[in-house]
Design a protein around this nucleic acid. Sequence first.
DNA 1: ACCTGAACACCGTTCAAGT
DNA 2: ACCTGAACACCGTTCAAGT
Lengths: 244, 244
Amino acid sequence: MPERAAASGSDLPPPPWSRAPQRPPRRRRDLLTQEAIVDAALAVLDEDGLDLLSMRHVARTLNVSAAALYWHIGSKDGLLDLIFDRVIGEVDVPDPDPGRWQEQLKEVARGTRSTILAHRDVIRLSIGRIPMGPHAVRHADRVLAILRTAGVPDALAVAAQQLLISIVIGVAIDETGGGGHPPADQPPPHEAAALASDYLASLPSDRFPHLVAVADHIASANADERFELLLDLFVSGLAQRARS
Amino acid sequence: MPERAAASGSDLPPPPWSRAPQRPPRRRRDLLTQEAIVDAALAVLDEDGLDLLSMRHVARTLNVSAAALYWHIGSKDGLLDLIFDRVIGEVDVPDPDPGRWQEQLKEVARGTRSTILAHRDVIRLSIGRIPMGPHAVRHADRVLAILRTAGVPDALAVAAQQLLISIVIGVAIDETGGGGHPPADQPPPHEAAALASDYLASLPSDRFPHLVAVADHIASANADERFELLLDLFVSGLAQRARS
DNA sequence: ACCTGAACACCGTTCAAGT
DNA sequence: ACCTGAACACCGTTCAAGT
């Protein structure tokens, strides 16, 4: 685990429609800081899931009244914005090495996937949030660096950078099916997979011939391999375009 | 818009860990039906968004007490399961035409994308839900039919079917950034895009040289084109694997 | 300047009681 | 069998009041 990228300081101009107030990092010897609140909230997110992430719960964690949080983070949405950017900061992107750009892209994708899986519910939180905090901006710049330094034309580089994220998120969503913090009473991941393929195999094969025929392939499907397959299709296809 | 696939009747065995009770479609001349509740809830989802989709709200829509819903759908999670499967049923999958399998895969992807964009918040609702209702099962079988009839080996077909969904969802999430039903006070989609690229262009170019350099490409990026690019990379790469 | 307590308008769900 | 009303334990947010 790399330490959180500290370079992108908070001295940037505020992104548009930002919902968290800009507060100096620490004034006196107060109990609360934006950072401390984000820490606590992220812990709740990881341990209890998004559904149990309430202002009151986070406040209880910090031995503070719920209303106290509002002075620092403005609103729950503001807090979620901060959490999102914090998590983005956890994935590190290598300095460009033009000869290895295809492999570097894959490394970024793998890193992104693994931090998503480390904070499974961040994916639900991220939907509808345009990533434009300091860490998000830094991340985008560094991925673009890999592509542009390798000679990928700008328009294609922009598309590739955005598609890469989409791909990783899409696959991660599929993988958290049944996993993550279940909405209610779902069984644990592997048991769910077993139940699922049992169910598929039990379906009437005259109505669903193909599904029943491949039920065992579904059961034995490996998420890592599938992800690598997609990365391969994407990156090698991209390289082909970049050449022409 | 095709009518909802009616073939997959409710005479299937219940999927594992189903959270909605199985109720006969309509007993007497009661006020409520599972179907009527799903209709109402889907309307609320489309018009007001997931955050405003509450049992009480749906019940108000139907001139019924909130508690009345529970007899029919068991829980809110059960209702969300039913909505999810209903929406899946809206995308239609063509009968296999082996000579055109690559184009058919793309058609399915485009159809899935457009029904997601027609029910933008369904994507948030879908996370963590394993699609295994009658419509989901039918959908999977028909996509597998296209692949297997074309001679794609089973293991690859299963991977391709799952990756195709992941890809579409991933791209759709990216597109609903700022759109959908905003968490709170975000600006409308195109205004948000303008604000975003203005912000990117305003960043210090010594710290984010690549991002600033391509800010205009980001502003003029076309979601449809990007989607088609990804489809092309995916499907043609897949065809290549299938041949070897 | 930073934080508390109480209040407002909501939630999902249960459960006795009605018909 | 189907539905209501009231209740329980929660929410996010605001706001006067304290220090």
